[in-house]
């Protein structure tokens, strides 16, 4: 799956030290299938945990069951993540828009 390749490539870059210490992730996924809402939510959350090498201490969400979910994750060591997955019922294409902020640089992806 594209999202898995995207996350693996990003994680390799983080582990290479390309952006210094990762601090914040904003990960937006636009999906074309309602089933992928939950599935991608878990994939992206796991990606954030892998990026910061630990589990979050707070996980807050707002959502509209049939349209989107937004999650704000906080780590007790200061890191944060903002995850949004929404469904596009018109264009039926998958899109990703990602910003990963490290103390020395950033990673971007826009599908």
């Amino acid at each position: 799956m594209f999202i898995e390749n995207l996350n693996t490539t990003s994680l390799n870059s983080i582990n290479n030290g390309d952006i210094g210490i990762p601090k914040f992730i904003r990960h937006t996924a636009i999906v074309n299938n309602p089933e992928n809402l939950k599935k991608y939510e878990k994939i992206i959350e796991d990606f954030c945990r892998s990026s910061f090498s630990k589990t979050e201490t707070q996980n807050i969400h707002v959502k509209d069951e049939s349209t989107y979910i937004t999650k704000l994750l906080k780590w007790d060591t200061g890191e944060g993540a903002l995850i949004t997955i929404s469904i596009d019922k018109i264009n039926l294409t998958e899109k990703f828009d990602v910003l990963i902020i490290g103390d020395k640089g950033s990673i971007y992806h826009s599908t």
Binding site: T28, I30, D64, S66, T67, Y68, T84, S86, I87, D88, K89, I90, N91, K95, D97, S110
Partner: peptide
């Protein structure tokens, strides 16, 4: 994010 589509 609208109920039908998302725009960036």
């Amino acid at each position: 994010i609208g109920e039908n589509s998302t725009k960036i």
